[in-house]
Write a protein that binds this DNA or RNA. Structure first.
Lengths: 225, 225
DNA sequence: AAGTCAATTATTTTGGAAAATATATCCGGA
DNA sequence: TCCGGATATATTTTCCAAAATAATTGACTT
């Protein structure tokens, strides 16, 4: 499906490889928030030269997953309540905006994609047999939300959105147990789909904002209360 | 005013220096949109090693001022009507959002800063004696808009906003002559100030969106019509 | 003890050469 | 002429060692 291109199986650059594995390690919190990332150590652990490491770290900094101080190296970005709250707020606002544009510009084909993505999501249950969030479900979930915004025609906004998605993923991992809290995801998603198909910008914005905020509220109230 | 720190006059890293001069060259369009940026040439023109050049380019890529293709090097980001339109749209939306939050959270001190910034802006005229946009005015203009959003408490949003500001600055340079077109900036800014001081979120959002959109409309209709 | 300064060690930053890859040129065959 | 592929050239990517800077230690003074 993706690309099994017969001819040129383009080898990624070392930088791209390292970027990927480093990002995963941060998102899965194998590298804890705040950890210093020294080149010497990284060189050993990831078996890489300094240049691609530097470049990968720099890229991660632009995604907000690491922070750097001039001449003092890099650290895994810290986490905080306020940070999580802002991420959720902005995800709501950005998606509300992108959905509004998609409603204005999207045709029946787009509607079809939304319907199909919801259908696929609906068929799977969120929690797998092991009690963890189901990997497949997670994929469908992402694709449903992507479908909603897919006709907004704002590539820069989509770039910002991707960055926030990444950052949110890390918190999701940190708070994974709270995320299995009882919550009627399916009803929320169906309501969003219906508002979108009704081409109701105000309502879909309200729902998508609430959708993102609910997640963070659940995490934070559980962790504090 | 800035920092004339007596003790440690921290020398910036070579990367930071190069980043600065490269960014300026792009913003002032001494490096035209689309231009390929080869390391050999850059090495000569900017008298720098490859490592800091690479890092600077990477950073500029994260700001959207250059684009890179794996193993094919970097180019100055191209410009387009759609690109400009999206920048203007997002600047309107982001600032509307940030102003809304500032209105909710800001105190009298914030109001004072807004009033002061408007006052300073008002005293200067936009077009200098040479017929170009006045440098001083431009500084006050930026500070007025910064004051409006300064209490939003959303650092990530401010980061995104900074990136869009940079990108917009390049278009402003490209279209500099059209920007001196007759337009009652002062009245627009006063209206925004008043809506903010009335703590009217809806109205301030409407005005700030229109403010950004008007600029792009002027540029585009002139260039096409 | 607390503070200063120098010496030592740890770490980041930089330049450039080597390796890997992409692009351009050239040549022969349909 | 146009295509395919081989060769040559141009360019990016990577490694690594040297330089620059920051952090730590310890001796000395008050």
């Amino acid at each position: 499906m993706e690309q099994t291109s017969v001819s040129t199986a383009r080898s990624p650059t070392r930088t791209a490889e390292i970027l990927d594995v480093l990002r995963t390690d941060i998102l899965e919190t194998r590298l804890q928030p705040g950890t210093r990332l020294r080149f010497d150590e990284l060189r050993r652990s990831y078996d890489a030269g300094i240049s691609p490491l530097r470049e990968a770290l720099m890229h991660l900094a632009s995604e907000g997953l690491v922070v750097s101080e001039e001449r003092r190296g890099y650290r895994v970005a810290p986490v905080s309540e306020d940070d999580l709250r802002e991420i959720a707020k902005l995800r709501g606002e950005f998606d509300a905006l992108a959905i509004a544009e998609s409603i204005r510009r999207g045709d029946e084909l787009w509607e079809g994609r939304v319907i199909a993505a919801f259908h696929a999501l609906q068929k799977r249950s969120k929690i797998g047999p092991d009690g963890e969030i189901d990997r497949e479900w997670e994929g469908h979930h992402i694709r449903f939300h992507d479908a909603l915004v897919s006709e907004c025609g704002m590539p820069k906004l989509m770039g910002f959105r991707t960055i926030l998605d990444l950052q949110a993923r890390r918190y999701r991992r940190i708070a994974v147990h709270y995320l299995t809290a009882p919550r009627d995801d399916l009803a929320e998603h169906r309501a969003i789909r219906d508002a979108v198909l009704d081409r109701d910008i105000t309502e879909s914005g309200r729902l998508i904002r609430a959708h993102f905020m609910r997640t963070v509220d659940i995490i934070l109230t559980r962790q504090l209360g």
